[in-house]
């Protein structure tokens, strides 16, 4: 059984885990084979489902825990955490 990789990261972009950021997150999560889950407070979301991520109700300042299980789990969590730290690469040109 593969080891669970996990990382905690705080949302920095102003909109939080909103439609566009969630879309970008899913696009990146889909690049990995691993199963990815995202935790916010008591809620758990499938990291490859936009609806499920929107349902986390996560805003700017919220801390998320991302877990991944699978061959590429280590890389997955680090890529996804960096994505959140980079504000989903969406706001850099503003």
């Amino acid at each position: 059984m593969s080891k669970i990789h996990e990382v905690e990261v705080t949302i920095k972009n102003s909109q939080g885990l909103h439609a566009r950021p969630a879309k970008v997150f899913v696009e990146n999560a889909n690049k990995f084979e691993s199963e990815i889950e995202v935790f916010h407070k008591d809620a758990i979301a499938n990291g490859k489902s936009i609806m499920s991520l929107l349902g986390l109700l996560a805003f700017k300042g919220c801390t998320l825990k991302i877990t991944a299980v699978g061959e590429d789990a280590a890389e997955a969590v680090s890529v996804l955490a960096e994505l959140i730290n980079n504000k989903f690469n969406l706001e850099e040109n503003n």
């Binding site: 439609a19 566009r20 969630a22 879309k23 970008v24 899913v26 499938n46 490859k48 489902s49 936009i50 609806m51 499920s52 969406l90």
Partner: peptide, 19 residues
Amino acid sequence: KDPGHILEAHQMMIQDEEL
């Protein structure tokens, strides 16, 4: 870019497994 992103997000919602 933004309208494009929004349309893609809508497409993703339509394809969403959970939904």
